Amino acid sequence: MKEASGIHMVTGNGENSYAANSRLQEKAILETRPVLCKAIQEVCTSLSARRSTMVVADLGCSSGPNTLHVVSEVIGAVQFYTRKLEEERRAVEVQFFLNDLPGNDFNLVFRSLEQLEHLGGKETQPYYVAGLLGSYYRKLFPSRSVHFFHSSYSLMWRSKGCVEKEKLDTFNLPYYAPSVKEVKALINESKLFDIEHVRLFESNWYPQDDSDSDVVLDYAIGGANVAKCIRAVLEPLIVDHFGDNIIEELFVVYASVVAKHLEKVKAKYPIIMASLKKAMH
């Protein structure tokens, strides 16, 4: 399978778009907020100049409100930290690079940035946002040019499904969900990073369900919402391979299948959160 350079989420902000159906991914960002803030504080501490620039890269930023979530969380964390310092140390500028493949809806991303204009009032840290097209499986930045990398719900996408070509089916997804053990082993094998924090948490299949109950109260609505969430991610790949004639019926059937499953048991997604620091040799 060729490198998956054409993968992208459903564009725009319509009913079936990724922007309108990414609540599951939002919950993961909110869950990881304390780790992100702690890492940003450590980066701030390492900046020595009175007027410093922090460079932040979001790998697989996609589009929609979650992209802005990450930007605003970083700005808020920098602002909170610098307020505790002396006045002359408060001028930390933040340069964001929002990275995704060329098919990503960057137009929506940049149209949405005006929502951040009033973040923190007049004392908002100076920040600058740029889009960066390309695969994170290739080199994207000059050496030692980025202070902080962030990636959420992106690293399970492989560059290319790793078996002999003749064994591939006609439709394949470059997707892999590793275990915590595999993640730790891969990081340790690279010898590039030290593991600061790693843990597994779970999120309900039904993105709008934030309860800890073992019962889905409305499994029909739950099935429909799960289907929308998956459709927002996979529709472009399916249309590219099969055409768009099957899309509506496919996800109606899929919603029904998920609803029947939720009627029996409340299913959850496992999500791995990891915070890494560059290894000092």
Rank of each mutant, 00 (worst) to 15 (best):
K266L: 13
A77F: 06
H118M: 08
C162A: 10
S179E: 09
D212F: 14
G6D: 14
K27G: 00
V257C: 14
H197I: 11
E86Q: 12
A39F: 06
D100H: 04
K84F: 15
S152P: 01
V163D: 07
R23I: 11
E164D: 05
R144W: 02
R144N: 03
L234D: 05
L140H: 12
F171Y: 08
S72N: 02
E93V: 05
F193R: 10
S154C: 14
L113T: 15
C37T: 13
K122Q: 07
A130L: 14
E86F: 11
A4E: 09
E93L: 07
M280A: 12
C37W: 05
I271W: 06
K2M: 11
V215F: 07
Y81R: 11
N204I: 11
G76C: 11
E3K: 13
S48T: 06
E235C: 04
R90Y: 15
C162I: 12
F80W: 12
Y136F: 14
S72V: 04
M280G: 10
D58H: 04
R23Y: 12
G223P: 13
N21P: 02
F106E: 01
M273K: 06
S143R: 15
S179F: 08
R144D: 00
P34Q: 04
F96K: 04
F251C: 01
M156Q: 11
A39M: 05
G6F: 15
R231D: 10
A274V: 00
F242Q: 10
P126L: 09
S190H: 04
V215M: 06
N172K: 13
T45D: 12
S72Q: 04
D214Y: 09
Q25D: 00
P34G: 03
H69E: 12
I75N: 00
F97T: 03
I40A: 01
L116D: 00
M280R: 13
N225P: 01
E249V: 14
N13V: 00
C229E: 00
D169C: 05
K2R: 12
G222N: 10
E15T: 08
G121Y: 01
E86K: 12
A185N: 05
V129P: 00
V183I: 09
F251W: 01
L68N: 03
L59P: 05
N172I: 06
V215K: 08
S275I: 03
K191V: 02
Y153V: 04
S151V: 08
R199C: 12
G222S: 13
E123C: 05
N99W: 14
E31H: 15
R90C: 10
S46V: 09
L140S: 09
S135L: 07
D58C: 01
H8G: 03
G134K: 07
Y81G: 00
R138D: 10
E202P: 06
I187D: 00
L217H: 13
F80D: 05
F242V: 09
I7C: 03
S48N: 09
Q41W: 08
E15A: 10
Y254H: 10
S48D: 05
Q125F: 08
N16P: 00
E182K: 08
H281R: 07
S211I: 09
L132T: 10
T11S: 12
V56N: 02
H69D: 13
N99T: 15
F193I: 07
V215R: 07
N225F: 02
R231Q: 13
V258N: 07
E114Q: 14
A4Y: 11
I195Y: 02
S112T: 02
V239S: 10
A232D: 02
E182V: 05
C61F: 15
